[in-house]
Design a protein around this nucleic acid. Structure first.
Lengths: 136, 136
DNA sequence: AATGAAATTTGCAATCATTGTTATTTAGTA
DNA sequence: TACTAAATAACAATGATTGCAAATTTCATT
């Protein structure tokens, strides 16, 4: 259940985060291209149309949006940070062959362990690796 | 079920990986201190007793051991790679407050999703964040 | 519309973990 | 002992991310 761009804008307004041109562009990009891009990719693509955009702003914006809970950072292997619109109950699959990242449905809220009885759990993430159908 | 240092040595020998002094030191460190250290931490601690050790060797060794399947790399947020002796069926919990990483039991092999019907799954990892009992 | 304070953006320098490269050392073998 | 390959060391290079200071923009108030 991906939130629409309009819903995200309202969410930002509700949290008193200014809807600047740059922030809306980043948010729009993430809703339009849900391919889990890196900051570099986001910057490179947006820079084509918005030549004044700086990479620092992309990083700042992503951090702001992540702190607001609208964006989630996926830390894959190889220390690459990738970004997506935050949605619940899905995991990520990374193909060892082509590097693509796929979303898949999984009830992450249902994950529990007796060892964590006295822990306060804030977030649960699931990350699989392997080979995708396209590469098989 | 942590493999003993001796079992790990045998495993290396079986795979024709030379049991050099440096490699055994790294392996020994990981079995002795299962705190998911960074490469930097491993280097700093081993360097005290083995002043000729280089950081490059620590990285090379960790990669060799990881490729051999004896060591697993945990990529947490903040782009920090941490290392542990590879064991099955556990997830990782990182405390947002103190930064410590805890192992917890979970049957990762039991995780499935209908969306991945035609995917070849190589590894499954589970990563929780929150606050640990010590910080609560 | 003008003013001024606060937030945002920009550009570039700095950081830091990791990798590349090459020379040196070590180990195993003839 | 000499030879060949593997392993290690030292240091440079990379690349993603952050810090910082200046410039720009926004918004509230007049």
């Amino acid at each position: 259940m991906k939130p629409s761009f309009e819903a995200l804008k309202q969410e930002l307004a509700r949290k008193n985060i200014h809807l600047s041109h740059q922030r809306l562009k980043v948010l729009d990009y993430l809703t339009r291209y849900p391919c889990h891009p890196t900051a570099e990719q986001i910057f490179a693509d947006l820079h084509k149309d918005l030549s004044t955009l700086s990479k620092t702003t992309v990083y700042n914006t992503l951090r702001t949006l992540a702190e607001a809970g609208l964006v989630r950072v996926i830390t894959t292997d190889n220390n690459e940070s990738r970004y997506e619109i935050a949605t619940d109950n899905h995991g990520h699959f990374k193909c060892d062959c082509c590097g693509a990242i796929y979303d898949f449905w999984i009830d992450t809220e249902a994950l529990h362990s007796p060892d964590l009885a006295h822990f306060e759990i804030g977030s649960r993430s699931v990350y699989f690796k392997g080979v995708c159908p396209r590469c098989l």
